[in-house]
Simulated assay, not measured.
Amino acid sequence: MITDRRTEVKRVLLAALVINLSMTGLKLVLGLISGSLAVVADAMHSATDALSSLMGLLTNSLSDPHPDRDHPYGHEKYEAVGALAIAGFILFTALEILITAGERLLDGLPALRINGPELFLLLLVLLFNLGLASYERREGRRLQSQLLLADARHTTSDIWTTVIVLVGLTGAWWFKVNWLDVALAVPLVVLLLRVCWQVLRANLPWLVDHIAIAPEAIHEQAMAVPGVLNCHDIASRGVLGQRVFIDMHMVVDADDLPTAHRITEMVEERLESRFGPVRCTIHLEPRDYAEQHITFRGAHG
């Protein structure tokens, strides 16, 4: 059964958009008041958070899981495309931080106008981001939304950005060492690149139709159904636990179509009970078509 969770995902993304816009404005004001390029860069990071939430809202409206004439397999891959766009925003943020650090070095590390109230406001921003990331991650897992999980990773990267900026500015204020926030830019960029890679690794297999379930596991479940004599050329794609498409060739112990059809229905029911939502295409074949090779080998197999 197809479950459309887009309304719930939209509610989460709207909350994230409002919070990210508020944090962007607050950080930008703090950056301009203090003269800290690091805080301005952090504000730009929050701006990409807001942009990714907006992109998520647009993507979510397109990712209808129900098939139609032009999209017989549904529209869910739009969600993965949106997640990849978020990865692009994260990469952009990492590059911007490096550029900002370079500009500060070229400017001779100008003195910062930072004190306790500004640092307290940054700490408040950090707490808001912690709450938002936790909320998006929890809802993403509950709704099985790759889009929300990707946005949660981006929000988490903003947490690390704010932590590093906060530590650097506190050191610069307390010890009068202005280069601390610039020195901390390098580990910050490494953290952002790691998050970018995590988003890519989670979504690229979905877009390129990488195997979703090992053919041996599918074969084991199918052969456990009474009446199945052989199944081969097994292929699968999709996201396990969310939506998987399975193709297989099968030989059944039946001489009439109604009985053969009932056996294939039992196979589909067993696969769905074991692997979650699946859509099976089963090709029935004569008994002399039975093969020992269970996996799909393609033209070069």
Rank of each mutant, 00 (worst) to 15 (best):
I234C: 00
L26P: 01
T295L: 03
Q144S: 14
D255L: 11
T156H: 02
D253F: 02
D233Y: 14
N20R: 10
S53T: 01
A41R: 00
E76L: 14
H219M: 03
V267H: 10
T259D: 11
P286Q: 11
R279N: 12
E118T: 14
H300C: 11
K27L: 10
S34R: 03
G171I: 13
I90G: 05
D209C: 02
F275Q: 10
V278E: 04
Q242P: 02
T162E: 09
H283R: 10
L91G: 15
R153W: 03
E96P: 02
D256G: 03
I114F: 06
E139W: 07
S34Y: 01
R297V: 05
C196F: 10
T7W: 09
A224P: 01
A15R: 14
A299V: 11
N230F: 05
E76Y: 08
L122Q: 12
F120W: 12
R297H: 00
L51M: 15
L257P: 04
I234N: 00
L95Y: 13
E136R: 00
L91T: 13
D49E: 15
G298L: 02
V186L: 15
R104A: 01
A214V: 08
E8H: 08
G131A: 04
R69S: 15
T170F: 07
L112P: 09
P226I: 06
N178P: 08
Q198Y: 09
A212F: 08
N230G: 07
F275D: 06
S34K: 03
F275P: 02
W173T: 11
G241L: 05
Q221E: 14
M44W: 06
L62R: 15
L200V: 14
W174N: 05
A183R: 05
H210I: 02
R69L: 14
I99S: 01
L271F: 10
L132C: 01
P117H: 10
V252I: 01
F120Y: 10
R194V: 15
N20W: 01
A202I: 06
R243E: 11
V208W: 09
D255E: 15
